[in-house]
Write a protein that binds this DNA or RNA. Sequence first.
DNA 1: AAAGTATGCCGCC
DNA 2: TGGCGGCCCTACTT
Length: 561
Amino acid sequence: MPPQTRRASFPKVVIERETDSEESSSDEEEEIDEEGEAEDDVVEDEEVKATANDEEEKKLVVKKKTAITISLKKVCKVCKRTGHEAGFKGATYVDCPMKPCFLCKLPGHTTMTCPHRVATEYGVVPAPRRNTHNSLDYVFERQLRPQIPKMKPEFIIPDQVNCAVIRYHSRRVTCLEFHPTNNNILLSGDKKGQLGVWDFGKVYEKTVYGDIHDCILNNMKLNPRNDGTVYTGSSDGTASCTDLETGISSSLMNLNPNGWQGPSTWRMLYGLDINSEKGVVLVADNFGYLYTVDMRSNNVTGEPILIHKKGSKVVGLHCNPLQPDLLLSCGNDHFARIWDMRRLETGSSLHDLPHKRVVNSAYFSPLSGSKILTTSQDNRLRVWDSIFGSLDSPSREIVHSHDFNRHLTAFRAEWDPKDPSESLVVIGRYISENYNGTALHPIDFIDISTGQLVAEIMDPNITTISPVNKLHPCDDILASGSSRSLFIWRPKEKYEMEKPKDEKKIVLCGKAEKKSKRKSGDESDCDSDNDAFNTKGKNVKSKKPYLESTSKSKAKSSKKH
DNA sequence: AAAGTATGCCGCC
DNA sequence: TGGCGGCCCTACTT
């Protein structure tokens, strides 16, 4: 058998060329070269075939005959077909037409022409003026209705960035909480397990506690009995109670006392809420279990209870604000569940609310506790108008873009705790909009009684997605977490006078410094932050703080093509 | 400046 | 039913 060259033993290579190519001349030269080589391969292949006699060689030939096709035609990155291409055209994303609509998940159209994108209220039946009442509902109505104004007030939307900390955290923000009594304190958790305490009234007064948790801080809640402490739950499997002044924390529980034994046994804490009437902190893990911690002893009481599908993550817990016996949970088993705290047993849920995909969050309404709002990965917000009425199906499903692939904190629709009608909700949007030539991801305010988009807010400086949002309990303030940064939004008209005159309202950080059990935030601290930023050298100018002057250049530079 | 990667769920077999 | 490959608009860093 004659010695074979390396090339001859290589399968036939076919290079397809785009006939209507608009490539430059140099590109075409390259293509011609490659094609020439490909033709050589074909010739040598045939020579080998001619000399192939025995079985083995024939098999070899069959193998060699399997052509590898290298296509130089432009191909859609989603479906790999030619003739179209998914991706950004300027600042507008063009969907692959071969796939169902990325927004509503139905086939036949793309996001661009999706009726739900054109109008968020599309297909939503507004809340009836009167619900069909049962006797329980009447009791509720009689007790609460006098406190609820008849007229729906006009919504006040915080739509302008008032102050911010850029790159405050060293990893993406996972949760936000306003301090209930100290109006200017915002707490933030991140993927690294760090806890930020930011006084956005003084802007530079910010602390990061770095050694409370080892990884993702999934949820936190301030202690209503002692608002100087916060409870946190983490993927490191521990729950902690931390003093906000000192950063000193005490561990409530550790689900992995024997350390790392592999991913199948490592327990993580996700859902967390406080039931102050009962004096307990409730936490839930990634295996479907609920744990109860006594707030006085800081000890776990009773046995863990399986409340979602075994082995599935319980991502959210919420105690009813008015009825201490009612608990709402949601998880990766595609369910939200209502429980009676007095009868917490596996399978004893009062109601199971099904979803098509993972439920990112489930909340009772903040004032009456009688409505339920859920955010599911199937790109739908679901609303149940009354927990005393029928819960067989949601009162409304509102299509909204918050289904994401990976790498982002899960979107959660959050109630406006100040809205007496309990209908205003805020949630970040995943898909971008072409905003004056820049792809931006707005934060949406939605009236969940009608499905209407009340407002979409954005800032040309914020080109990243803002999945974490929280509305202030008493002021017209929105806090949003986007990647590693925090933003405070206020209503434009209300605060037009005090537009950020001084750049100090925007604090730039480098990588968030590790600070532990130490309160910082004095002048030296802010200096060090600026230093950290300045070490970035050339970036200083382009990322110079704020707002109008630098916004356009930065927005353009981040535009995708 | 292109390539790498952290990362979570879904669906397939 | 479990393990594994594979993802449609990320946000960085090297």
